[in-house]
Design a protein around this nucleic acid. Sequence first.
DNA 1: CTGTTAGCGCTTTCAG
DNA 2: CTGAAAGCGCTAACAG
Lengths: 343, 343
Amino acid sequence: MPPTPGAADRGDLQRVTITDVAQAAGVSVATVSKVINSRYGVAAATSERVQQVIDELGYESSLVARSLRSHRTNVIGILVAEFEPFSTEILKGTSRAIAGTGYELLAYSGGGRSGAVAGWERRYLSRLSGTLIDGAILVTPTVVETGSQVPVVAIDPHAGPAHMPTVDSDNFQGAVLATEHLLALGHRRIGFLSGREDLESSRLREEGYRTALGRAGVPVDESLVRVGDYRQESATGPARELLGLTERPTAVFAANDLSAIGTMQAAGDLGLSVPRDVSVVGFDNVPESALTTPPLTTVSQPMQRMGSEAVTLLIQLMSGTDPIRTHVRLPVELVVRGSTARP
Amino acid sequence: MPPTPGAADRGDLQRVTITDVAQAAGVSVATVSKVINSRYGVAAATSERVQQVIDELGYESSLVARSLRSHRTNVIGILVAEFEPFSTEILKGTSRAIAGTGYELLAYSGGGRSGAVAGWERRYLSRLSGTLIDGAILVTPTVVETGSQVPVVAIDPHAGPAHMPTVDSDNFQGAVLATEHLLALGHRRIGFLSGREDLESSRLREEGYRTALGRAGVPVDESLVRVGDYRQESATGPARELLGLTERPTAVFAANDLSAIGTMQAAGDLGLSVPRDVSVVGFDNVPESALTTPPLTTVSQPMQRMGSEAVTLLIQLMSGTDPIRTHVRLPVELVVRGSTARP
DNA sequence: CTGTTAGCGCTTTCAG
DNA sequence: CTGAAAGCGCTAACAG
């Protein structure tokens, strides 16, 4: 028979609350609260007894109730539109960085299509901040002005780093690298499939593409530039258009790996062989990019490190320390694999 | 000048609450609440006015406050020890499955070393359930009895599927496949590096290894069996012991990809070439397994699908529908890549 | 040292 | 149709 009178012998499996503990221990909830939060002003004997009841009942304080009251949770929120290869790499990085800091991680994602509800990050932030999370990392947010009262760090945001603390990578240089690689192989008709137009990264990658072409004296053929949104399913359409052109490009630079994979797929559908008939370059170097046949040539950005840098920055912000830099830009690197060749 | 008297003209950037909205609209909070939740009994005109104020103020109701009161949030919790390649693949699957269901996803992870705090899943569940989340997916939980009042589905749990609704893959068969592949190549001295001993999957993989050996008439050399815990860093030690043996194994089957990667690393440190000097097989087929040199031969389990099946099952459970099956076991497949060869 | 009280932001009877 | 009031589980003054 259970030794605890409070919660243990009631029929239903209700969550055991601080009240249950208080009753079982014969003290007030306030005292229990003090014990939990190891505040001063509790007799050793009482404290011990309460602690024992807590163990017996398996009590764990409700994050929700606590946060509603105390506005301090030691939880960092990571707000993403969707759990896809990019955001999950970020997650891996944050997970590593969080170890030993005393913070816990709460990654939040709405259900829907990322495009469907613009401004999701503002909604989520409103729903969670002020309560539940002490600070947030926004992954590829669209909205600049958050109006948030908790510290926020953005990864690869809509606008440039001026607006809020930001972690990103050298998107422009990466795109130059990718395009120059294609140019060096002898390509002249190089298509570009853009990313989400509302993101700075996409604009910078397009700019890098145009700049590299310009530097090489190759005029930009606007019919070779298409709009994507960083998602694989949305890439196949424009990619097919591009590859269906009478004078089709001999190479395509897609603004991220998922689009590049979609492009390779479209090529396959059209009976085109990569890289023989068309070369493809991506951007990001998500693990999936190495799994394609042939493996994708891409620009590697240190996604995990972006996650960990964001955590570091956010923790500085939350602790009130003035961060040395409020904007971290990380270097990129060209990774040549099998999807590119001479035309 | 802002048209809203309530929150807009106070100096600090406080979260806008339902009270602010009520004041600005000149109604009671109860009415605002009704409008938000589209309850009956509000005049169209009032409703419209309130809605307008909500838009103006950018009000979004606090998930925390709401859940504390109503015990219904439309949020599914995914509790993981850490965001690593396995759990993030699961996440990708859940993210896809959630689309269009009306649920949102909240992935929660403590900071620390996974081993450090056994029973984390029970703690997290207590902290979040009853409030905040309507149901939970536990990824590789150690504790069987959750005592939870919300529906719970486990992925790859500690004990067999008898104890709670479970999604897993055919771990035993996968291990047999892996071992037989090695056997077929001509290996006889095959080492095994186990996973977390507290997980059923690890036990089943070891059993599959032993069974395949037995069937082939190869006695198990116990000195070739070592204990790991599914993490890369923890694998190098035992792997080094194994590969440092005078009569070292010609092949190692590691209980998951991360351990296999650690094993390849250990081999490299010892000046051994994979697969020339030693063959290595993993388990999982996380994207990272294709990125090693040489790419890892492994047993593929459909991790994303495991995530989506878990969501489907959980939603059935939450809606009170009796699920057809309360236990889903998915098939595995051998993926032969470059890390295995004849001895 | 301990308990009482108030209230975080919200939903939900229940009167008016 | 609308609002007053109670209370979800917890913490934070403040009395005793």
